[in-house]
Every structure is written in structure tokens, then in C-alpha cells.
Design a protein around this nucleic acid. Sequence first.
DNA 1: AGTAACTCGTACACCAGTGTTCAGGAAAGG
DNA 2: CCTTTCCTGAACACTGGTGTACGAGTTACT
Lengths: 203, 203
Amino acid sequence: MPSSDARGTAPRARRADARRNVAAILDAATDCLARDPETSVAGIAAAAGVGRITLYGHFKTRAELVDAVLARTVQRADVILDATDTGGDPRDALARLVASSWQIVHQFRNILLAAQRELPAERIRGVHDPILRRVQSLIGRGQRAGAFRRDLPRQWLITTAFSLMHAAAEDAAVGRVKADDAARLITATLLAAYTPPAEGRKA
Amino acid sequence: MPSSDARGTAPRARRADARRNVAAILDAATDCLARDPETSVAGIAAAAGVGRITLYGHFKTRAELVDAVLARTVQRADVILDATDTGGDPRDALARLVASSWQIVHQFRNILLAAQRELPAERIRGVHDPILRRVQSLIGRGQRAGAFRRDLPRQWLITTAFSLMHAAAEDAAVGRVKADDAARLITATLLAAYTPPAEGRKA
DNA sequence: AGTAACTCGTACACCAGTGTTCAGGAAAGG
DNA sequence: CCTTTCCTGAACACTGGTGTACGAGTTACT
């Protein structure tokens, strides 16, 4: 039921300033939460240049707000990844995918953190699903092509990829690695980890 | 200042029941926090079979309690790792170290999570340091022996190891991997990731 | 047995954040 | 220009947790 209600009166589109405010709130929230995942609703409203009450007018609860932010962020990420070529040699494709993903993770890891505090775990997994699917299919293709190892469950390979991204993001946040270096490190590590084990190596 | 104060009177050892209670509290706290890192002080006291006030008698604040739990846990972990042979072929040693560490991480990851909420980041890093040092020296040895790659910063290799452990722990908690399988997966992945890259491979 | 150490329950002050209510005022949009 | 939608600040109830104060009861040690 996107635009017309079941009731008689079509609910006349939102007023312009309302839409503007919602956008401002979403932007501010994304910004604040990225900096500090525990920012209070009051803080976000202030940053958006809007009264706290106005905010509650658009998002019934804090959780709802966080959810909206998460959804929008993931959806944007998905668009970026959509523009990333995942064809050709699986190893090259992986490198490209990592480069794109890293940027996103690096920038928004705190948002995920905020979401983890407020939202049920399943919801988060649900939202992440489209992205996860991307990695999954690339890995699958690589395995069929013989470029990636098949002796470990695919699920685990995916976990490895995500895990390294987030770890790198954290290290970058603390200054343990330079942000420009991260993609290279992740890629090198992942490629090595995914390479089919040489014969005669012990398991 | 472990047992005798600078003041004149030696402060007569703690009464037996007091010591017993402290132990009970620590045990209960470890247990509760491992299950739910947000357990309230009241909950912990109850689980320890002790009044909330008694608890506050021994630990001035919640943070102090969490800190104590963390310290004790890490120290126990350190003992376990101390009993793990890190000599011989670096690859085998790594496998052994992973096997031991995994158990610990798997069991206590929630405690770390609790600590992250309550304690300053530096404190956590400080406590972890002895463990970290272990991995570091093993990796260093492996690199010098030519068993592990040298084209990535050692710091990053360490991060990789920790990251995979925690990722596996999380996956195990959600049931995505079987707990008995985890050590194998981690080891296989890490060994592959640490293997010096073949010549002529692109970076 | 006596004393100091320890425990316990109730009760309270406190804090920060969330979510609600109200009534008036501004501005979009027809 | 007039109606409807929306914004707003102040004030308030509520929640859940933390930490404190008191006074009486219990228990360990000597």
C-alpha cells in the first residue's frame, strides 16, 4: 500500500517542508551515529536543526529512526556495489568488490554498531542480505572456476571476507593501519585465504 | 601494595565469608556477563546469592566489577596459553595456538563485549597485551623462518588472527558454524592467509 | 563470650534518556 | 486568503539503572 489508502480519501502527498525535514533528520542521524553510535535523539534533532518533537512526529521511536538510517545506508551501498563490475577473472573481481565495499564499511561501521544495539539481530541480517548475496555469488563463481578453494564451507568464506573488512575498519579507526592501505591488505589476505590449498599440504 | 598497608596497623586479613562472597560474585558475574553482557548489578548479585549492597561493598562501581571480571578472565586465559607449546614448526605451533585460543574466545567473547561498553578502550588493550604479545612473537618467528609471508605488516597479520577468531565465535553463537568445526576453519584459513605468496602472482 | 567484620533489606536520591501532551504559531498549497 | 498541515517549546510522567544511608541482624575469628 504505497500511495493510496484503502480508505476513501487519498492521503494527499506530504508537505514540502515535512519532506525536507525528514531528509535533514536522516542526514543528521547518519552523520551523528557514524561519529557516536549512542547519540541521543535530542542530539540528532539538534544537529538536524529541528525540534525533538518534530523528529518524533516522523519517527515514532528511536529504534524506528535507526532502522530508517540503516536501511537507507545499506540501500545506498547496494547502489554503489551495483556499479562495481563483478565479471571477469574472479580474483580480479574480488579485488574490485573489496575496494568498493571497504570504503562503505569504513565510513559506516558505527551505524551498524548503533543498529546492533537497537534492532533485533534478524532485522539486521535481513537488511544486509542483498549485499551478502553479492559476495556469495562471486565466491560461488570463483569456486566453480577453480580459482577459489572448495574445501571450506562457502558460508565461512563469506564470514572471512566480512570479518576482515570490519577488522580493518576498526584498525583504521584506531590508526593502526592507514586507511588507504586497508583495501590492499584485505585483498591480499583474502586472495591468499581463498586460494585452493596446494596438494600434499596437511589440512 | 598487596597485603600490608603503609599505615601502622597491619589490616588483619579479610574474613573467610567475605572472601567467599567475593569469589561467588566474580563467578556469578563472569557467568551472567558471558550470557548477557548487559546484565544489571542487581541481577549479578542475585545470581551470586548475595545482596546488592554486599556487592557494592566489594566493588565500588559496576565498572570496577567488570574490570575485575575481565582481568581475571584474561589472566586465566593467559595461564592456559602458557601451557600451550609454541615451539617447533611455526605452522604447527599456530594450529595449536589457535585451538587453545578459540576455546577461550568462544567462551568469553561476551565478557569482552561487556568490557567494551564500560571500560575505556586503552584499558582493554592494556589487559589484552600479554596475549597479543604471544601471537606476535609466534608470527615473528614464523616470518624469520620463512614459513609466513613478510609482505604484509605484522600488525595486520595479528589483526587477521584475532578477527577470524571473533568472527568464528559469533558465527558459532548464531549456529552458522558448528563449534567443533571452528578451530579447523580458522586454522586452515589463517595458514593459507599467512603463506608467502607464490612468485609472479600480482600483488 | 565478646568484638569486630560482614551481611542484608528497605528506602531513597539521582541521572539520563525516552516518549507524550498541550496550545499557539508559521507556512504550504489550493 | 484561508484551510490544512506541520513545526515548536515547555512541561511532565515514566523507565531502568546506579549508587548511598541507615539500622539491625549474623557470622567469623580470638
